[in-house]
Design a protein around this nucleic acid. Sequence first.
DNA 1: ATAATATGCGGAATCGATTTCGAAAAAGTA
DNA 2: TACTTTTTCGAAATCGATTCCGCATATTAT
Lengths: 340, 340
Amino acid sequence: MAGGISLKELAAELKLAPSTVSRALNDSYEISEETKKRVISMAEKLNYHANPFARSLRENKSKTIAVIIPERINNFFAQVVDGIEEIAQEHGYHLLIYNTHEDLERERKIVNLLLNGRADAVVMSVTSQTSDISHLQKLHDRGLPIVFFDRVRADIPTTKFITNDYESALEGTNHLIKQGCKKIAFLTLGKDLSITQERQRGYAEALKNSGLEVKPELTLYCSHEEEDNIKKIEGLLASPDRPDGIVSSAEKLAFATYHAVKKSKLVMPYDLKLVSFANSSIAGLLNPSLTTITQPALSIGNECAKLLIKKLTKPKHYELIDKVITIPSKFTIRESTLRD
Amino acid sequence: MAGGISLKELAAELKLAPSTVSRALNDSYEISEETKKRVISMAEKLNYHANPFARSLRENKSKTIAVIIPERINNFFAQVVDGIEEIAQEHGYHLLIYNTHEDLERERKIVNLLLNGRADAVVMSVTSQTSDISHLQKLHDRGLPIVFFDRVRADIPTTKFITNDYESALEGTNHLIKQGCKKIAFLTLGKDLSITQERQRGYAEALKNSGLEVKPELTLYCSHEEEDNIKKIEGLLASPDRPDGIVSSAEKLAFATYHAVKKSKLVMPYDLKLVSFANSSIAGLLNPSLTTITQPALSIGNECAKLLIKKLTKPKHYELIDKVITIPSKFTIRESTLRD
DNA sequence: ATAATATGCGGAATCGATTTCGAAAAAGTA
DNA sequence: TACTTTTTCGAAATCGATTCCGCATATTAT
């Protein structure tokens, strides 16, 4: 667009060949120290900056990592992105960010956008509706390094980072049982997500272990509409057989529960105890403060980026082998599960 | 990286010249409908995707907007980015995201990274420490379209989007006064930020209008370390002359206040009333629920992106003139400012 | 002194898409 | 029939940096 000077112009100014200037700037061994200094100082003087597109075109790499998340107004994803950026910035990588807004169609479009090599690698967490994965398969087939986190798809053979969903849900549910809950409900988002299935499995296992019945009507499938969720939870709380404990598999469902409880004129933790997967820093400020299972978001982001950058810089020494790496969550007990 | 087919190969497959294929794909008038169809169907069959770097190099534009924010784990900034993305996605623009982590040195590095044309335009909100602006000046001098939001710098002549900081702070402070507060403190981040200065001005004006004294010791300059802030606020609340009301110019300072109040064994809103600039959706779930001044984050993001894209697509018809556009905040009264 | 090697640099091809210029073929006009 | 105009397409230059190849000059070995 504007005033950038090109390598050729810089070379002309120095009365050198473009090839020489290029080598000097890239600190090639075939250029004398003296020439290098001359070139570098002139480059600074003329404010030369290499055109990234010319370089990417020639080298066939972009120094860019694409990150695809389902929503941004979400502490967990925001923290993961921060974790990715931390490592990326260290290694001179740029971050392209895409938000699917939990919409499969958008996810498809975005993934197709990445088919052209704009990014060297992809970090992603799928939509809660993602059932068909042909678009992801295509991306993977093209040889683009890709890692998944949190909402992963087992059917794409690459490395995935998750937390110990099963164990955490088990622990959280056990805690509710220990605090005296007899009828424990489970709140979840899509049925297609492996992580929520795992959390549900942990929840069910805990119930079984304690001889409690797993009733289907106590599992509530929620949407991404806060109002709808509040109503659904209100409905659950209004039933004659209302639960005395809730395990929520997502932060936003915990918030919806607070609203529903308020509307239902119930009082936590007396009428209902709540434990939730959550990454918000203000869980302790809620009324009552929220017992949480906190995912190691920053670490997950860090690990995703580290692995990808290793793969990008030393392709031969690292493979994105098909395996799941688990980083444990942290369980924090607060007032929402206080024993009466 | 891997299996992308090039335009030339596609052309060879079709027994056409690359120029013809390019024109066909770009729907040029000089190509017959029949050829276009042939080309398009073959392109799909062979899974052709244009190399974005070759195109960017040739056209000297990247279809990319860079967004620089000071922190990501912040509802306001997350919402603004969402607003930007919404518009960008509509127009086929990509988003490069950078986080300065409130660090001026990092901001400089990032801005310098953008000097090479990687992005067609920049949307940014400066660090709370940004005093020297030579790096921003350089970016602007280079002719890169740039708009600021929220944390703006008056000394760069371009368009800025903010909210009505002065009026909102005035309104919030007036509300506290009406609710009976006599000693109102003000919490703020950097002194260099124009928006916090404006908020402070609104706060002071409200006090003056009501005949209350503006005491310097009631203005607390906080940092980005939550623990430090909590201690500082605790100190404020422990003073013999402790305030009975607080106007907080940032969401995180409101949260710190909740913690400090808890530690101080005080009770809101009886001992202290609080109003804060905040964008978190769970202000209503806090105990007590928080009276907020909510910035129109999504709209701000939308407007930034709309303006830039207009400028990028019709450079002659739009100028990023040096002016400040104000989008008003929303004041929501909740329990934290209830009259006793 | 002659051959062999190292050092320092230039020329030109290359990455892939766009676009200017031009030319052949088809259609219309006189 | 001859000539102009339109339609449709091809050849080659271009964007800017990297790199393969080659060529001097200087240094060392024989």
